[in-house]
Amino acid sequence: MPACLHLLDAYLHRTETFIWQSLRKSRRFQPLVLADMWENLERFPLANGELLRFPSRRSMIAKLLARMAGSYAPVQYPGAFEILRNREIAVCHAHNGFRAVVTHDFVRTLGKPLLVNFYGADVSQKTFLKRAEAGYRKVFASARFLIVEGPAMQQRLIELGAPEEKIRIQRIAIDPMEYHFRERAWDGNRPVHFLFVGRLVEKKGLSVGLDALADSRVDFPWRLTVLGDGPLRKALEDQAVRLGLQDRVEFQGYCTLEEMRLAMAEHDVLLQPSRTAFDGDSEGGAPTVLLEAQACGMPVVSTMHADIPYVTVPEHSAWLAPEGDAMGLAYMLRRMAEESDRWGLMGRSGRTKIEKDHDINKEIEALEGLYATAG
């Protein structure tokens, strides 16, 4: 069986379930993973692939020259070439633009075609883009395909100078059969149970979500469970206290994929108010949790940020507000309560959307088709 060499910063960050989905579902190309760091291996087993643990390094001279030039030093894997040249590698797949920049020379020496997946910060974060400018020119010129999650990210990549003819939309995907579907209903006699899932960073928009929940128009009973952690947790907990919401908002920290699925089964509506951060960081595409919630039958309250309208069905599976707009989000929360008779229908619409457009068992065929074409 031919192999695809997957290039990652780490295998695998807790939030990168979308990468794991595509790796574990590979059928025609054995996934070989080359990473700088190894973590959460028990959470993300890879029975159909192989983890290649070559030590990575960057020479001091290369680091110094890169720092002086305001760019990134290339990474090397001593001893890897001798092993990899004897493997049936058909194509290399770099997961995020940064990894493509620092492994570009390694892939070129290996002599294999390169595909690059862009995910979010790598097309939006200002400091990174400034340092990656020269590296991106090389990547755009040499890569066989540049992969994005949706049309908003596609347009952003074109603005960065990528050749449009190389860009391919590859939808993020999950296995819907792993998510239990349940229609939601609410009669107004109990609190609405909201769920937020994500890293507690600016682009996830939870600060805006708390402001919206504190708005006087949100005059129905509710509770919010926050699953996730990050650098803004203390500030967000303080904000909840300042707004008088501390008795209705529970911060539970990180959870496993299984724990998240259980939480989805117990909650009514997903609240995911993503936005562009001050430093430009954005979702790029859309959070995977939007797919997971819709697969479970949860209506969604979110924003029109990035490719979120592309992975939901606006007005049919999700109420979407302008990003960063607490008043607009409060209006959508009010609509959600007033239109609770539609929750079941919206849940079915969301599930249908995921089964049709975001089923990993279908999307892996498209991705491996790109591998075959590139190789």
Rank of each mutant, 00 (worst) to 15 (best):
A100V: 03
D238R: 15
A366W: 12
F98E: 15
Y136K: 01
R248G: 02
R14Y: 14
A374S: 14
V75I: 13
V102R: 02
A90M: 06
A374R: 07
A73L: 04
A214Q: 01
E159R: 13
A90P: 00
L7V: 04
D211A: 11
P31H: 04
Q155P: 04
I172G: 07
P163N: 10
R171C: 10
Y72C: 07
L32M: 04
A66P: 00
T303S: 09
N96W: 11
A321D: 06
T17V: 12
R67W: 11
A3C: 14
F106N: 04
L224N: 06
M304D: 02
A10W: 04
I354G: 00
T109L: 09
E315Y: 13
I83W: 11
R131I: 13
L51W: 05
D268W: 10
G344T: 10
L8G: 00
R342I: 05
I19C: 06
R342P: 01
I174T: 03
R334V: 07
E165R: 14
A66T: 06
E133F: 10
T288V: 15
G297M: 01
R199Y: 08
V192H: 11
L224A: 05
D279G: 01
I167E: 05
F251M: 05
A372D: 11
E165H: 14
Y371A: 06
S207K: 10
V249R: 03
F29W: 08
T312Y: 02
E315L: 10
L46P: 00
A326H: 12
D187G: 14
F106R: 05
N361K: 15
R168A: 09
A121Y: 14
I360R: 03
A132D: 08
M264F: 08
K166L: 04
R335M: 13
Y371S: 08
A372H: 14
E258G: 08
V33W: 04
W38G: 03
V139Y: 03
A321L: 02
V201H: 10
F18S: 06
H13N: 13
Q246P: 00
D341S: 14
W319C: 05
V201N: 06
Q30V: 15
D122T: 05
S349D: 10
V269A: 10
A326R: 12
H180V: 13
R67M: 11
T103L: 05
V101Y: 07
S207T: 06
F251P: 07
A173K: 01
R182T: 12
L262D: 13
G198P: 03
E259I: 03
E159T: 13
E250Y: 11
S349L: 11
A321F: 02
F181I: 02
P287I: 05
E159A: 14
L7S: 02
L146T: 01
L271E: 01
V313T: 13
L5M: 04
R137K: 15
R58V: 07
I174K: 00
S216R: 11
A366H: 15
A235W: 03
L290Y: 00
Y136S: 03
F220P: 02
V313S: 12
N86R: 15
T127E: 14
R182G: 07
P113G: 05
V289N: 00
E259W: 00
Q21Y: 15
Y11T: 01
I61A: 15
G49S: 09
M68W: 13
D307I: 07
R131G: 10
L157Y: 02
A80F: 02
P31R: 05
I61Q: 14
G120F: 01
R156N: 05
V201P: 08
T15G: 10
G244T: 09
